[in-house]
């Protein structure tokens, strides 16, 4: 116990710093997400070629989902190994299934 109380100050500082860093990351991510959204709307309204717009839109969407999961839903923290495994496993299976089905039906 004694050791804990001695080190509690530095412990607190460490956590404060960590929280601060996290806050900074969240603000940056938030700004980025807003910029991405503006870009997305801008591209659609500017009347660029569809073939160019759609892939970029999808890419921006995927990045935004990543931001959302890792910075706002804290998947970057420890203890999320199983949820990541389930999500990536599920996404891989779903992607493969949808891709195969689309190819088989409409190729």
């Amino acid at each position: 116990m004694a050791e804990n109380t001695n080190s509690s100050n530095s412990h607190l500082d460490y956590h404060k710093q960590k929280k601060k860093d996290e806050m900074k990351q969240q603000v940056i991510t938030f700004a980025l997400m807003i910029i991405f959204t503006i870009i997305a709307f801008g591209m659609v309204t500017s009347g660029l070629d569809k073939l160019f717009v759609v892939p970029i839109l999808l890419l921006l969407a995927v990045v935004q989902v990543g931001f959302q999961l890792y910075y706002f839903m804290h998947m970057s923290h420890k203890g999320h190994e199983l949820p990541s495994l389930m999500m990536y496993g599920g996404a891989a299976v779903a992607f493969l299934t949808v891709l195969t089905m689309v190819v088989l039906v409409w190729w």
């Binding site: 496993g89 299976v93 493969l96 299934t97 195969t100 088989l104």
Partner: peptide, 9 residues
């Protein structure tokens, strides 16, 4: 479990 998803056809 995994393989079960890739055999439906």
């Amino acid at each position: 479990g995994f393989l079960g998803f890739m055999v439906w056809a």
